[in-house]
């Protein structure tokens, strides 16, 4: 395999590896093409304050914070420890320099409290500046999942990282499967009701979650849907319906939403409208109607056209009527 041209490939791989290692120092740095000067001003904190280190903060105030235990276990908290081997990110990375805050320690209700007003007021920052607090590190660390964040509907609608992630809690700050649905319902209450309709995906039952179909941190598709097409997305769990088939249902099935409501429906199979009316919206009834045939012709179309999503087998008329 490596005879002749194979040596050239090996040499190219070796040179690429050397170049990559040689350039490592520069690669670790965050290098904005053009700084976001206005937002950066918001997140640098008081210019007359100095960085004092986490121990100085925690020993005076935060040591009594009930969140400290969880914070220490979190990805952020772990970075305070030399044991973790993680690159340093400490309290002041997000909250700003803390010398003024600890210089004015007060006792309120029996608890020592620092002067929070001298720190960055994270909750009152513009949403995009809030996210910038996180992005200034995560842009340099090749964090997965943020590829489409900047143009995502969440970012452009004023949702920040803080709205979904509790920075002080959790081993890796992810929102767990069991918590994510309740989190989404806070801003999308109508979706909760849709999943309570008589026919629904098992979201409230704890099996499927919002993250199975949507990527809240951005996606190339509308509604923040994962995968490149609706057929691909639904095909992750309903692969037998995804095709391609020898006999396709037009290109209707490229968009499953032509017939289905994905969250919940009053109709079985999450159909938009009840059979047989669903089919009659596009197709005229193909069978004669008489008194005798009334029940027979006006029935559930998929009793006979079972393979309505597509089929590999011709029907009796050698066409694609999806009867088998």
């Amino acid at each position: 395999m490596f005879r002749g041209g194979g040596k050239a490939v090996l040499l190219a791989v070796f040179l690429a590896a050397v170049a990559a290692v040689a350039g490592c120092a520069g690669m670790q740095e965050s290098q904005p093409i053009i700084p976001v000067s206005e937002y950066e001003k918001l997140i640098v904190g008081r210019l007359d304050a100095n960085y004092v280190g986490d121990q100085a903060c925690l020993a005076k105030c935060h040591a009594h914070d009930q969140l400290k235990k969880w914070f220490d276990a979190s990805t952020m908290g772990s970075q305070l420890s030399s044991d973790s081997g993680l690159p340093l990110v400490n309290c002041e990375s997000c909250h700003g320099p803390g010398s003024l805050a600890i210089a004015n320690i007060r006792v309120i209700n029996g608890r020592r409290t620092c002067d929070y007003s001298t720190l960055i007021d994270l909750k009152r920052l513009p949403k995009q500046a809030q996210s910038l607090i996180c992005l200034k590190c995560h842009t340099a660390n090749a964090t997965f999942g943020l590829h489409y964040w900047n143009t995502s509907i969440h970012n452009l609608s004023g949702v920040s990282c803080f709205d979904c992630h509790n920075v002080h809690k959790g081993v890796d700050l992810k929102v767990g499967r069991r918590n994510v649905v309740a989190l989404c319902y806070k801003c999308h209450p109508e979706i909760r009701a849709q999943f309570s309709l008589p026919n629904h995906h098992p979201v409230n039952e704890g099996a499927v979650t919002c993250l199975d179909c949507h990527d809240p941190m951005g996606s190339p598709n509308r509604h923040m849907l994962k995968d490149g097409s609706m057929k691909e997305l639904c095909g992750n769990c309903h692969a037998e319906k995804a095709g391609p088939f020898a006999f396709e249902h037009g290109d209707v099935t490229e968009n499953c939403l032509n017939c289905h409501r994905p969250h919940g429906s009053v109709n079985q199979h999450l159909l938009k409208v009840r059979l047989p009316y669903l089919c009659y919206q596009c197709h005229e009834a193909q069978h004669p109607v008489t008194d005798q045939l009334n029940q027979q012709a006006r029935t559930i179309c998929t009793d006979c056209h079972t393979e309505i999503h597509g089929s590999d087998t011709p029907d009796l008329g050698n066409g694609g009527a999806f009867t088998r």
Binding site: G53, Q55, Q79, L80, S81, S82, L86
Partner: peptide, 18 residues
């Protein structure tokens, strides 16, 4: 070989393990 925490040497004695 990773970057270890120095932070002014203030936290070398703290065990953050839980």
């Amino acid at each position: 070989g990773g970057q270890t925490v120095t932070d002014g040497g203030a936290q070398g004695n703290t065990d953050y393990s839980m």
